[in-house]
Amino acid sequence: MTLDKLPIGKSAVIIAVGGEGNLRCQLLDMGLIPHTEVTVRKAAPLGDPIEISLRGYTMTLRKDDASKIEVRPKEEV
């Protein structure tokens, strides 16, 4: 599953970060690396971009870019 498909309010663990060049480096620098847990907080009023939280902070990225990030949804406890 990719990050853009993760339902709002759900958490997942990053498996792989795709994309290339600038975008990819920026995602890695912001801490979106394999094994990191992310939670989708909400989508912008126009449906895109999305708001996610990870490593104790909140950031936003576009769905297109989020679709390059492969995640494994966390099981409900």
Binding site: G21, N22, Q26, L27, P49, Y57, T58, M59, R62, D65
Partner: peptide, 12 residues
């Protein structure tokens, strides 16, 4: 060329 990606922190 590539636009700068929109990856942005939403600070408190």
């Amino acid at each position: 060329g590539n636009p700068v990606p929109f990856v942005m922190e939403l600070p408190n």
